[in-house]
């Protein structure tokens, strides 16, 4: 589904990596590894089309993502370092807007159910600014629950999460893979999904 061939990425004058090729098929989990500054985030941002690759191409369903453009965006979801939630809004409002930006209108019931599953019962209508870092991350991750995009691109999804939330993430990723989804992620914490062999890609 996702094919990367001879990809090279640079930041300013500095070449981060080159000649990177891999494919990702339905139901596969790929962990991107590398030391700080090896270009993990840049790789994920290139996969999102934010950054132009210095060389090579990225193909989704056999078409270059530059040509697919918005059709590709409908099939992927990206979670960056930043949570993309607004302090002034409450969790429900934030999620409704985030879902809208991802192209779908979701009913309030579903949003509340998603938040409860993320362990935020009772915090649905509090302004996000009173939540802790971990809780904010949970709000951001709740987006994954009502997205039907097959490709998940997660940059350090486990930052600020406690053990129970990490377990929940493993469960979510497992479910997504079982539904023929695909996940690419970076992490510094180990993430094991039962019954799935994690493929590893190391950037040096």
């Amino acid at each position: 589904m996702l094919e990367i061939s001879n990809l090279a990425c640079s930041r300013g004058d500095h070449l981060l990596f080159s000649e990177l090729s891999f494919t990702l098929a339905a139901g596969e989990l790929l962990q991107v590894e590398g030391v700080n500054g090896s270009g993990k985030t840049s790789l994920l941002r290139t996969l999102c089309g934010f950054m132009m690759p210095a060389a090579g191409e990225i193909r989704w369903r056999n078409q270059n993502i530059r040509e697919l453009d918005e059709a590709y965006y409908a099939e992927m979801i990206y979670l960056g370092h930043l949570n993309a939630i607004k302090d002034e809004l409450n969790a429900v409002e934030n999620l409704r807007i985030n879902a809208g930006l991802a192209g779908c209108a979701v009913e309030e019931k579903k949003i509340i159910a998603a938040l409860r599953r993320m362990g935020l019962r009772g915090r649905e209508t509090l302004p996000v600014k009173v939540l802790s870092q971990g809780q904010r991350r949970r709000v951001a991750l709740a987006r994954l629950l009502f997205s039907n995009a097959p490709l998940w691109i997660l940059d350090e999804p486990l930052t600020a999460l406690d053990v129970s939330a990490v377990g929940l993430m493993q469960e979510l990723i497992g479910e997504h893979l079982a539904h023929q989804g695909m996940v690419i992620y970076t992490t510094h914490q180990p993430l094991e999904v039962a019954g799935i062999t994690t493929r590893r890609l190391s950037l040096s």
Binding site: C48, E70, M76, I77, Y78, L82, N83, I85, L101
Partner: peptide, 19 residues
């Protein structure tokens, strides 16, 4: 831009111009 929402906006599947 600072809180990352703009990144999500760039990935909007309808039309960035409309947004």
């Amino acid at each position: 831009y600072l809180d990352g929402t703009l990144e999500q906006m760039m990935l909007v599947p309808q039309s960035l111009s409309m947004l």
